[in-house]
Amino acid sequence: MSTSEYTKVYYGNFILAIRIKDELERIGIVPIIKDEGESQRLAGYGSMSQGIQEIYVHNDELKKALEIVAQVKSDMEASSES
Rank of each mutant, 00 (worst) to 15 (best):
H58I: 07
S49R: 15
P31M: 09
I33M: 13
Q53E: 14
H58Q: 12
H58R: 15
V57A: 04
E38K: 12
M48I: 14
M48G: 08
E54I: 00
A43M: 07
G51P: 04
I55D: 03
K34D: 08
A43G: 04
S47N: 03
V30D: 04
I33R: 05
N59Y: 10
L42V: 06
D35K: 02
E36T: 08
Y45P: 06
Q50N: 07
Q40G: 06
D35F: 04
I55W: 08
S39I: 13
D35A: 05
S49A: 12
Q53V: 15
I32N: 08
L42K: 11
E36K: 08
V30K: 12
G51E: 05
S39H: 04
I32W: 04
I32F: 00
E54Y: 01
Y56Q: 06
I32R: 09
Q40V: 00
I55E: 03
I52L: 15
A43Q: 03
E54C: 06
Q40H: 00
S47C: 02
G46N: 08
G37P: 05
R41F: 13
P31V: 11
I55T: 02
G46Q: 06
K34G: 05
G37K: 10
H58Y: 11
K34A: 03
L42Q: 12
G46L: 11
I32E: 12
E36P: 03
L42R: 10
V57E: 01
Y45T: 05
E54N: 05
E36V: 11
I33L: 14
I32L: 06
G37F: 04
Y56L: 13
S47M: 03
E54G: 01
E54Q: 15
Q53Y: 10
H58E: 14
G37T: 07
I32K: 10
S47F: 02
I32Y: 09
S49C: 13
A43T: 01
Q50V: 13
E36G: 00
A43P: 01
I52N: 08
Q40E: 07
P31W: 01
V57D: 02
I55V: 09
E38L: 15
G37S: 13
Y56V: 00
S49T: 14
D35G: 01
E54T: 02
E38P: 00
Q53H: 11
R41D: 04
N59L: 10
G44I: 04
G46V: 05
G46T: 05
E54P: 04
E36W: 07
S47I: 01
Y45R: 10
Q50Y: 14
H58C: 05
G51M: 06
Y45F: 15
Q40I: 01
Y45K: 13
Y56M: 05
L42H: 06
E38M: 13
I52K: 08
Q50C: 00
S39T: 06
S47W: 03
Q50E: 14
E54M: 10
S49K: 14
E54V: 01
K34R: 12
Y56P: 00
A43V: 02
